[in-house]
Design a binder for these strands. Structure first.
Length: 809
RNA sequence: GCCGGGGUGGCGAAAUGGGUAGACGCAAGGGACUUAAAAUCCCUUGGGGGGUAACCCCCGUGCAGGUUCGAGUCCUGCCCUCGGCACCA
């Protein structure tokens, strides 16, 4: 055997990265692709810390899939960009005292270097950054499309206010009532004029479409829960004075047990319904609640508080007068902001009734102690509906009340309208001009972008007004409609608006006169495959779907779902915990790539667990992957020294039957597993194959070439290097994925387990596809089997082809 | 509380239209090579027991039951754990 040169990943990887860049290998023909495949991954936020191992895990998994598709002859477009606006970046800039406009380009530069180093098949021509005016011009344009369609509106609303960020944050960014970014800072309730997108209008469609999307179930479930559809009824409770109080309930069958009403403290009818002698108490309570943040209102299982209004309403079922209360456990944002309280069959109502000694009337017979919330019971104390099951009663009671004009079926969603206003600096200004005469007026499209002015002191303050208001030349502007003095909107938009459309921009980044080119868009979109984490299951993915739906309605795109196929990858954790800066367990990949090489590191990440489940980062096992690649290196070098017709090789395939069978089996498994993103088991299969080649000394061109192609998505640099060693001029990515012969893969003998009464008592080797009779004959010759059958009559024989034979005696 | 994942060797994990549990990798132990070490290669490795030996037996996939010739896989009831939502009526 000739001396094999050692494998030096640094040299190999630099060589191929340089060559891919020089030959523009990763740049498909965007205008005339034969078989376009848009391979998308979630673009990163360019943090100062650089790309972390979680990003690399996600990108590697997506990149493998893209390269796999390329080897199947697709023109794969794999773009990358940077989600660089937002409070993340701004806060970091504040903490280090550098302007984000200076900081972000540096961070992006670092990310670019890292993304190139790990060997992603990125088309750098189409790189984008959301902070580029050439990009956010169109973010603003999208805002205007929604504004003109009446889907963007201003509303004074209770919003989540983070005192640290000094800004409104979306419900989605409030975690258990605390700020997502400042886990020790409680979010407060404030009332501000905000811009909202009317996403709730699309709730039903967003929910329904999920059924026909090819998405990971985990992601779909998260979105379904987030949209939170509830079916029930709206029931009307009338006051003696004739005021109607609508309530939403999912349990209209329990209406006979409604012994009091509770309104949210902010409910518009409260003033009117408050009796004079209760007014002082009511007002005090309302002030108290307002002073509190939305958060502590939402913390469960605290003692209930509330005040009686001093007035009554009629239960539409029983006709009796029941007291009306206000309490902060009822939320104005959900349903009608008022509930009928059925303390016998609702835990919260029960707590409240107990606290304030309100009557509790059981209307569903139940074995358990109250409150029992079962839906499987039978009604009692419910007049003519006694004895009817809850399920039937739900329909019948609503029909009955409806006939009296006191109720109707109703559907509610948990989803709220999307508040996109941010009183911050680092984002695209909302393209609106406020005019005293005309109201809010959209900036004319030809005046876009409304550039974010450079403001040295971009710190937010507690006024609730964006720093942009302090830039007077920018702030004052003529009304585009009437020409009078107007003022610019000083809020910037939520980062999630930036990322809600970036996939539309990628194929068209070079066009400055349109957000996306119609032809390019028709060619590449919707996205063929989207791979990303479930941390974006409800925010980014829901907003993107919403924006696309609206754009489709307005005729700007031809499809309503941007991501027909989506796969969620798992999470990389460290020492059993999520990686985070505060825990200090964030792994930065650079050192690992330097030590082991990108190919080894990529494969290590894919081997540490199932891609779609994630796993614990434990670097002790990297060496196993390195050993595997060294074996491949050695085997291919040996093969390269051989010429066709070497002794020991068969004419034709040049492979021994055992190697040939294993090869076909391996191709079959690697193909199926890679398609399913089961990368860990695909790698195992390649390892088994290489182990066999080493065992049998069976290195030959015919044995290793298919292996290299299968390995190419996983370890692209090494595969290229060894492919060239085998005297291929062309890149391995111009080769085509090996095919397999299922019959060949399944050829040869099989070992069959022979059971007696379900316990394995012996193993026999027979030709694959052997008949039951043949196997029984062989099995009964087995001494151990005979011992257990022991002359007893065989009552029954169960045969599973090629797997198992079971004698029941 | 509600909605989802998931509990398999010392460790990461394979195997689910029910059919040989532990593939592949790490670690560990033993051996070869070496002055030595590293690297590499070979052997062993779920637990327990038996045999001079090729081998053989019992137990084993969170717990308790069930269905079945046969259960990691299906059913019932629990326990633990991770993620999401959470006073959503």
């Amino acid at each position: 055997m000739t001396q094999v040169p050692s494998y030096d990943p640094a040299v190999v990887e630099a060589r191929w990265q340089e060559r891919w860049a020089r030959e523009r290998s990763n740049e498909p023909d965007l205008d005339r692709p034969a078989r376009p495949f848009y391979n998308l991954m979630m673009f990163p936020y360019p943090s100062a810390e650089g790309l972390h191992v979680g990003n690399m895990f996600a990108f590697t998994g997506a990149d493998i899939y893209g390269r796999f598709k390329r080897l199947h002859g697709y023109d794969v477009f794999e773009p990358i960009g940077f989600d660089a606006f937002g409070i993340h970046s701004e806060n970091y800039a504040l903490s280090v005292g550098t302007h984000p406009a200076k900081l972000i380009p540096q961070n992006i530069e670092t990310f670019r270097r890292q993304l190139k180093r790990f060997g992603g098949m990125f088309d750098w021509r189409q790189e984008l950054s959301t902070t580029d005016p050439r990009y956010y011009r169109w973010t603003q344009w999208i805002f205007l499309q929604l504004f003109n369609a009446g889907l963007a509106f201003r509303k004074k609303a209770a919003v989540n206010w983070c005192p640290k960020d000094m800004s409104v944050v979306a419900n989605e960014q409030v975690i258990h009532g605390y700020c997502e970014r400042h886990p020790d800072t409680k979010v407060e309730q404030r009332f501000l004029e905000q811009w909202f997108f009317n996403i709730t209008r699309y709730a039903e469609r967003l929910l329904k479409n999920l059924d026909r999307l090819d998405w990971s179930d985990s992601t779909r479930t998260l979105q379904r829960n987030w949209i939170g559809r509830s079916e029930g009824a709206e029931l009307i409770f009338e006051t003696p004075a004739g005021a109607k109080i609508p309530v939403f309930t999912t349990r209209p069958d329990t209406v006979f047990g409604a012994t009091y009403l509770v309104l949210a403290p902010e409910h518009p009818l409260v003033d009117q319904l408050t009796a004079d002698e209760q007014r002082r108490q009511v007002n005090a309570y309302r002030r108290d609640v307002q002073g509190k943040d939305l958060v502590s209102r939402r913390v469960g299982d605290k003692t209930k508080t509330g005040v009686f209004l001093g007035s009554y309403a009629r239960n539409p079922a029983t006709g009796e007068a029941i007291p009306i209360w206000i309490a902060d456990y009822v939320l104005m944002e959900y349903g009608t902001g008022a509930i009928m309280a059925v303390p016998a069959h609702d835990r919260r109502d029960f707590e409240f009734a107990t606290q304030f000694s309100l009557p509790i009337r059981e209307v569903v017979r139940a074995a358990e102690p109250l409150p029992s919330v079962t839906e499987d019971g039978v009604l009692v104390n419910s007049g003519e509906f006694d004895g009817i099951s809850c399920r039937d009663a739900q329909r019948r009671i609503v029909d009955w009340l409806r006939a009296k004009g006191l109720g109707a079926p109703q559907v509610q969603y948990r989803l709220h309208d999307w508040c996109i206003s941010r009183q911050r600096y680092w984002g695209p200004p909302i393209p609106i001009i406020h005019c005293d005469r005309c109201g809010p007026v959209g900036v004319p499209e030809q005046d876009l972008p409304v550039e974010l002015p450079f403001i040295e002191d971009f710190r937010p303050d507690a006024s609730g007004v964006s720093p942009l208001a302090r830039h007077k030349e920018w702030y004052f502007v003529k009304c585009p409609q009437c020409g009078a003095q107007g003022r610019r909107e000083t809020d910037v938009s939520d980062t999630f608006l930036d990322s809600a459309w970036y996939y539309l921009r990628y194929p068209s980044t070079e066009f400055d006169d349109r957000p996306w080119d119609p032809k390019r868009t028709a060619t590449w979109l919707p996205v063929t495959s989207y791979i990303g984490g479930n941390e974006h299951a409800v925010l980014h993915l829901l907003y993107s779907r919403f924006v696309t739906m609206v754009l489709q309605e307005l005729g700007h795109v031809a499809f309503e779902e941007p991501f027909p196929k989506l796969r969620a990858h798992g999470l990389i954790i460290k020492d059993g915990a999520k990686m985070s800066k505060s825990r200090g367990n964030v792994v930065i990949p650079d050192a690992y790539i330097q030590k082991w090489g990108a190919d080894t590191f990529r494969m290590y990440l894919m081997f540490l667990g199932p891609f779609q489940e994630g796993g614990d980062f434990r670097d002790t096992t990297i060496v196993g992957i390195r050993r595997f690649l060294e074996k491949v290196w050695a085997t291919v070098h040996e093969a390269a020294g051989l010429t066709p017709g070497t002794p020991g090789s068969r004419p034709g395939s040049g492979l021994s039957p055992a190697v040939e069978r294993k090869l076909h089996e391996t191709i079959q498994k690697v193909t199926a597993d890679t398609e399913r993103l089961d990368y860990n088991t695909a790698i195992s299969a390649m390892m088994e194959y290489v182990n066999l080649l080493r065992e049998q000394g069976a290195s030959s061109r015919a044995a290793v070439e298919p292996l290299l192609i299968m390995l190419a998505p996983y370890a692209p640099h090494l595969a290229e290097e060894l492919w060239a060693l085998l005297r291929h001029e062309d890149s391995i990515f111009h080769a085509s994925w090996p095919s397999y012969d299922a019959k060949l893969a399944a050829a040869g003998d099989v070992e069959i387990a022979v059971q007696v009464n379900g316990k394995v008592r012996g193993r026999v080797t027979v030709a694959r596809g052997a008949s039951e009779a043949q196997v029984v004959a062989v099995a009964l010759r087995d001494e151990s089997v005979r011992k257990f059958v022991d002359g007893q009559p065989v009552k029954k024989t169960i045969y599973v082809q090629d797997r198992l034979l079971n004698f029941v005696v």
